[in-house]
Amino acid sequence: MNFIADILLVAGAVGAGLYCHVLSRRLRNFTDLEKGVGGAVAMLSAQVDDLSKSVQGAQATAQGSVATLTDVSARAEKAARQLELLVASLHDLPKEQTAAAPANPFFVRQKRDAETRQ
């Protein structure tokens, strides 16, 4: 009876050892930097770094655009104020009488011009 219990105990220990060996191989492959999750984490970390650099570049560009737009907007407002003053000053001018419109607004070459050129 003791002999059978010892055989079962040894068989269980060998089975547990094989299980641990297989599990160790799987974990080693799982955390491998080239193929497993470790590689995926390393790749994602590099992509996050690239993305953060791109975001910083986009923020710098956006800040430059905001500064340019602010300057252009201020110049446009200044020009609008000047135009308003000019239009207001035009209302103060006396109305001039306009010249009579010509009877024939089209240019017609006369015959003597054609004869003198020949």
Rank of each mutant, 00 (worst) to 15 (best):
L8K: 13
L8G: 03
L9R: 13
A11D: 12
G15L: 13
A16E: 08
A16Y: 15
C20H: 13
H21Q: 13
S24C: 06
R25S: 08
R25M: 12
L27G: 01
R28S: 11
T31A: 05
D32K: 07
D32L: 02
K35W: 11
G36E: 04
V41Q: 05
A46H: 06
V48A: 05
L51P: 00
L51V: 01
S52L: 12
S52K: 14
S54A: 12
Q59N: 09
T61W: 15
T61Q: 15
S65G: 11
V66N: 03
T70D: 00
D71Q: 11
V72N: 05
S73M: 09
A74G: 00
R75H: 02
A76P: 00
A79I: 09
L85Y: 12
L85T: 15
L85K: 15
V87D: 00
A88P: 02
S89M: 10
L90T: 08
H91M: 14
H91W: 14
L93G: 01
P94E: 02
A100R: 12
P102L: 03
A103C: 00
P105T: 04
R109F: 09
R109K: 15
R109P: 04
Q110K: 14
K111N: 09
K111F: 08
R112Q: 12
E115Y: 06
R117D: 05
Q118D: 07
